[in-house]
Simulated assay, not measured.
Amino acid sequence: MTQVAASEATVFFQLSLGRFESVVDLNDTVRAAKKKFRFAVPQVAHVNLNSFHVNFNGSYFTDESKTLASYNVENGVTLHLVKKITCPAAAVDTEKKVDE
Results as ranks from 00 to 15, higher is better:
1 M>G: 15
2 T>G: 11
2 T>E: 15
3 Q>M: 13
3 Q>A: 15
4 V>Q: 12
5 A>P: 02
6 A>I: 06
6 A>S: 13
7 S>D: 11
9 A>L: 09
10 T>W: 04
14 Q>K: 12
14 Q>V: 08
18 G>S: 02
18 G>M: 04
21 E>G: 05
21 E>Q: 09
23 V>E: 06
24 V>N: 06
28 D>E: 09
28 D>V: 01
29 T>S: 07
29 T>C: 03
29 T>G: 01
29 T>D: 07
30 V>H: 00
31 R>Y: 11
34 K>G: 03
35 K>L: 13
36 K>P: 08
36 K>D: 13
36 K>L: 11
38 R>H: 13
41 V>Y: 08
41 V>P: 11
43 Q>M: 10
43 Q>W: 03
46 H>R: 14
46 H>E: 15
47 V>I: 15
48 N>P: 05
49 L>I: 02
50 N>Y: 10
51 S>G: 11
52 F>L: 08
55 N>Q: 12
56 F>Q: 05
57 N>K: 15
57 N>E: 15
57 N>V: 08
58 G>A: 01
59 S>W: 11
59 S>G: 08
59 S>V: 12
60 Y>H: 08
61 F>Y: 03
61 F>I: 03
62 T>Y: 11
64 E>L: 07
66 K>W: 10
66 K>T: 02
67 T>C: 04
68 L>V: 07
70 S>F: 04
70 S>K: 05
72 N>I: 06
72 N>P: 00
73 V>A: 03
74 E>N: 14
74 E>W: 10
77 V>N: 07
77 V>G: 07
78 T>L: 04
78 T>R: 02
79 L>T: 01
81 L>Y: 05
82 V>Y: 01
82 V>P: 00
83 K>G: 02
83 K>F: 10
83 K>Q: 13
85 I>Y: 10
88 P>D: 12
89 A>K: 14
89 A>Y: 14
93 D>P: 08
94 T>K: 13
95 E>K: 11
97 K>I: 12
99 D>R: 11
100 E>F: 10
